[in-house]
Design a protein around this nucleic acid. Structure first.
Lengths: 339, 339
DNA sequence: ATAGTGTCTGCAAGCGTTTTCATTCACTGA
DNA sequence: TCAGTGAATGAAAACGCTTGCAGACACTAT
């Protein structure tokens, strides 16, 4: 069997007995062509199993109907939720998601972004504010519309949708302060190249400073976002500067790691130590004790980002910044400090 | 400021004082052009901020350097892990991932697949064996190389990489049988259009049948893969046909939902009820009691799928089927049944 | 009859690359 | 000196689609 090449539009046109232009219009701008012709073309297309050639179309129309997204690892549940929402909502509007990830490194992110732009994405979704200046330059040169997800831009310069990390962090810290805690420790994500991690840490510091409490340097540990790393960080803190009664974690995954270690060691949570997370991933409500955290609506961010991008591509105006609510969720992992 | 259009290759060529052909070669086939010329072209390209136009290149070369993947919701941690691995490994080889998802529905999957093929993907990754016949027809018509991930094809017809779900399910059920359990219940994922869910359920039935035990219909509940759904299913089973001492779940997310409800109700796990999951997501090891489960190496599946696809695109032969190991992981959520 | 008005269709010029084929040019060896 | 060789370059033809423009045609209003 000879591997016959896929039928192209000219084949459809010829078989249907119309010109290339008419065939194109019959499929793309149905109202421009007489009903009978249109039907004939469509039937022939279906019969031949015609599949449009996206690259050719993209070349002619200068649009790829493709949106790029550059994420840190999407196996982080919160990014997975956003990716899912993004892919789903874009697909509903006829767009497809080109996904690239990086390991929280500026070089990887820049390369990934460049790859997406080369693929001709119509728009680009990025995470956070911290980016290589070369990335912003690339963005403005290429003229691709973009959105920064997750954070809000203090400079008001970039279109973005996200939450106020620092403020949310202040609130959860105040919750612990209000419970009576004075001895704090923090397991943060790496703050280099990550404004979310940084702002959350700053939030803790500010909230404490507001009550005249200083966060001791040896009570802060930066690590990778994973449960095992969270556990190890907790062990490290316990060894290095014990005596804290409240542990604020950079995200839920880290908090769950710390929580597991507590269970393992028989440290009562929250009676001996209170633990707070950030993100409110699905599991936060499922573990015991359920985790006090800040709900970061990842899926909602993905949805809003998709909607904003689609609106912009349709020529509509959207607010420069869009804040989604980050709600404090008090569960069982935080309580009064031991007397 | 006039929005100057992006420089194209002809601009680079003119500025560098060479022909279009030479410019193209200088960037793509460096060895074909004299070192001096090559350098000049490259410098000009960098200076002008030239970014190749992917659609034009794809049209000319008939390759997009893009791989499509169609997943069920990627916010399921196990699929998220595979997506991450896939995107990462493809990127390392200069390919980008076009991601589409669906809600476990054949129509959505078919549409998503068609969209990817229209985008001109060089290869396609799908999940599982259950697909609309129209999808397979589309696949063979278009001639796009594809891989089925997650399962193994009993017919040996399709290229695939995955695990033997039924066998793994039999093993974890036998583990429970060996502990002395005789009263089983199952929370399964929806088995329609999902061979993994179906095979896992069949595995439980077969293992029980092997010991002369029948799985009662009212002890089986199919539901959506989410922790809340798992919890509700558990409550339903408890109300409908109590008395089971072993609960086998279609995946870890369902199992964690059931586990949470046990903790909530003070049902001792594993003393009163043993719970087994499937997948070994990160959280399985973090909860208390830690979950007995089958390790499905999602990231590994993604890696192997990427490697196989890249090899095939490079013209290499790969084995038609590749099985990745699915290991039984015995933790604390399973034990002897109550006397 | 004639001009005027739409509606439908076709021609052909792009879109920005890659790649085949031919050409030029500087060498080489006889 | 001259054909022969190989390396470097250029001209131009694809790749498969969209779309501006103009023509053909059937009407209607004058």
């Amino acid at each position: 069997m000879t591997r016959r090449t896929n039928p192209k539009l000219s084949d459809v046109a010829r078989t249907a007995g119309v010109s290339l232009a008419t065939a194109s219009r019959a499929l793309a701008d149905p109202e421009l062509v007489k009903a009978a012709t249109r039907e004939r073309v469509r039937e022939v297309a279906a019969m031949l199993g015609y599949v449009p050639h996206g690259a050719a179309r993209a070349l002619a129309t200068r649009r790829s109907r493709t949106i790029g997204a550059v994420f840190p690892p999407v196996d982080n549940p919160i990014f997975a939720a956003a990716t899912q929402a993004l892919a789903h909502d874009l697909a509903a509007a006829g767009y497809t998601l080109l996904l690239a990830t990086h390991e929280y490194d500026p070089a990887g992110e820049l390369g990934a972004t460049r790859a997406l732009i080369e693929r001709g994405v119509d728009g680009l979704e990025l995470v956070g504010m911290d980016h290589d200046p070369a990335l912003f330059e690339l963005l403005s040169r290429s003229g691709v519309p973009y959105e920064l997800m997750w954070s809000l831009d203090p400079s008001g310069h970039h279109p973005c949708v996200g939450i106020a990390h620092r403020f949310a962090s202040i609130r959860i810290t105040q919750h612990l302060l209000d419970l009576g805690h004075r001895e704090f420790a923090v397991i943060a994500g790496f703050t280099a190249h990550n404004d979310r991690a940084r702002e959350r840490l700053v939030g803790v510091r500010e909230a404490l400073a507001g009550r005249g409490i200083e966060l001791r340097a040896e009570r802060v540990f930066e690590t990778k976002f994973s449960a095992p790393h969270g556990r190890r960080a907790f062990i490290e803190l316990l060894g290095r500067a014990p005596g804290f009664t409240a542990l604020v974690c950079g995200n839920d995954v880290l908090a769950l790691g710390a929580l597991t270690e507590c269970v393992r060691r028989g440290i009562a949570v929250p009676q001996a130590i209170s633990i707070a997370g950030f993100d409110d991933i699905d599991m936060a409500a499922e573990v015991t004790p359920a985790l006090t955290t800040v709900r970061v609506p990842g899926a909602e961010i993905g949805r809003v980002a998709a909607a904003r991008m689609l609106a912009r591509l349709a020529g509509d105006e959207v607010p420069r910044q869009e804040e989604v609510p980050a709600e404090l969720v008090i569960r069982q992992s935080t309580g009064r400090p031991p007397a």
